[in-house]
Design a protein around this nucleic acid. Structure first.
Lengths: 338, 338
DNA sequence: CTCCGGTGTCGAACCGGTTCGATGGTGGTG
DNA sequence: CACCACCATCGAACCGGTTCGACACCGGAG
């Protein structure tokens, strides 16, 4: 293992000079600087991360807490993770991925032991137990998902209320007067996934304001139950002309459901989902959807987190809660009703 | 931040005694041991990871290199990651997830800087550039995926050859005499995904040995092209009575393809895939399949890696290449031909 | 009563970086 | 020619753990 001492000796300078030459934190004569750099390169010197973190109290690592909960659609999670990971690397940080079920214990462990400079929480619930631990931690935190209490953390989420409104208004403009909204399972809501309500309530309010009918239902997140549930919904409300889907599993199951019923979109039924474009492409979902922008949200969270870590904004600066505006990606599955 | 010095002072002992009391590496009188433990707890002492790694040359972190390549089915990757992450935690390790495209640079970075004790490589290609770096690294490495040259690393993979044989033999036993095998895109093979060939060649050999016909084809990994390709395959070989699918995207697209053709499995066509049970459940795939066991493979790789890290087996002990035996999960999609 | 061995504790050194204060040498100015 | 300022460099201390060798104290054996 080659240390900065080896580099210094080889270059004929002191350790401190070698350090300054490499970091540029003090002025060093050009010839010395070049020689040190050259030696460092030829010896393949790489600073020891542990030693550096001990000396600087910086690890250049971000903790990423992802929960894989029952009834949550796992493949969607991957896109948030990639958004975080790729942006972190771009900003010079590595990512410590923690998936253990007990998020509070995990958070305490990596925070107290100073393994990380900051923390990103995915899958944040309305009343998330991890938040208390996060607020007590020394490191700043950023969330993807909106909790009830946003004090002390930066928050990023899709604007689910605007999404709900937008979905209803879009179909209303096309002339639809009776809609169905298939949400995540009630289980998800009970666990604190308030985004389900946020979208649903806003959609209901928008429908009421326009005097149109919106039937809402929780649909299972697992196959094949969700297919059955969709069939039942369509049977129950035969006059509905459009289906809103806030449930990835339901969206994935929908093509075969429509097929089985011998109907097609948008001819017989307008369909509007809420998922990412990546998701749509992977599973060939031909439905227009509100873009859930997981990569963008993960990326935003990391950028803000790094700004706090690096002191560009301090603990004095106000914490932000920023919503990504929903945008409809048109895949041609909505049209005026027959 | 509370250090071991604080604990020692509070307990009225020296730093070294406090350290020994907590680690148990030397005999310490019971009362002192208890007092130190108590103080540590009341002060919420947690060792500084950087300092500890500097002193012990151990980080208790495993590096996980995952590549997200074009034409590779991303959701499948998540299951390997979870297998690694969960097992690592179980064994007391955290996971540094690296997704950057340039795997060799990433590997060098985290290895040389001593951020990690060992390395797991996912998505290993026949001739993987990362292997050279890994062999030169100080830390042991474990692979998921079989490269040409396995020297110096422990390797875990599904036995794709046996899988190919097994698929053909299973259908032969049922009486099928003309089969189609839809593989991953040729692109994946060219990049070094030899597992495609391993399965395909073994399947072809088994078919030849039994004197039955096997049509093979590369199918796209993206939607909706893969659906089109499947239609073409079924059109081209109208007498084939069974379809083997070594391509997740194709498997996901198959239900709507069958639906569109008005045929069902296993009545009109026996179908046998190669993917994980988790995958099947998530996407409601009603097809029997060879279990690809991503969680198990990830878990095995980590266990072996930790054994090497902790010196249970040394660099002298032989490196293993271990194959998981393919097992068919029967979901009722294979039957004798009509 | 002395000597010996073992047990429990302590001080100091070390891991590999960064950073502060001090110092020697240089050039420019009065 | 003396003085000052500044630049480049060095030595030492520090971050927070672990671990080695030394040593004090104790009980038991001779």
């Amino acid at each position: 293992m080659v240390t900065i001492g080896d580099v210094a000796r080889e270059a004929g300078v002191s350790r401190s000079t070698a350090s300054y030459a490499l970091s540029g934190k003090r002025s060093i004569s050009e010839p010395v600087r070049l020689r040190v750099a050259e030696v460092a390169k030829s010896l393949q010197y790489t600073p020891n991360a542990g030693a550096r973190s001990l000396a600087t109290s910086q690890t250049k690592v971000i903790g990423l807490l992802a929960q894989f909960l029952e009834d949550e659609f796992a493949p969607a999670m991957l896109q948030y993770i990639l958004g975080v990971s790729n942006t972190a690397r771009e900003l010079g940080y590595d990512v410590l991925l923690v998936t253990e079920p007990d998020g509070t214990a995990a958070l305490r462990r990596i925070s107290d032991s100073r393994m990380i400079d900051g923390i990103v929480l995915l899958n944040v619930a309305e009343d998330d137990a991890r938040l208390e631990v996060l607020r007590a931690a020394q490191q700043p935190g950023a969330l993807v998902g909106l909790p009830k209490d946003t004090r002390g953390v930066d928050v990023f989420d899709l604007d689910f209320e605007e999404a709900g409104r937008e979905m209803v208004e879009h179909l209303h403009r096309l002339g639809h007067r009776e809609l169905i909204l298939a949400s995540q399972p009630e289980h998800v809501v009970e666990r604190g996934g308030a985004y389900v309500w946020r979208l649903q309530n806003a959609a209901a309010a928008a429908a009421a304001a326009r005097g149109i009918t919106l039937h809402t239902a929780f649909a299972p997140a697992s196959q094949p139950e969700v297919g059955t549930a969709l069939h039942e919904l369509l049977d129950t409300y035969p006059d509905a002309t459009a289906l809103l889907v806030n449930n990835e599993a339901a969206a994935a199951a929908l093509p075969s459901v429509l097929n089985a019923r011998g109907i097609s979109s948008p001819r017989d039924l307008s369909v509007l989902g809420r998922y990412s474009d990546e998701f749509a492409r992977t599973f060939s979902l031909p439905f227009s959807s509100i873009e859930s922008a997981p990569d963008r949200l993960g990326s935003m969270a990391v950028r803000q987190l790094v700004r706090r870590i690096e002191g560009e904004i301090g603990p004095g600066d106000p914490f932000v809660t920023r919503f990504v505006a929903p945008e409809i990606v048109d895949r041609g599955s909505t049209a005026p009703p027959r």
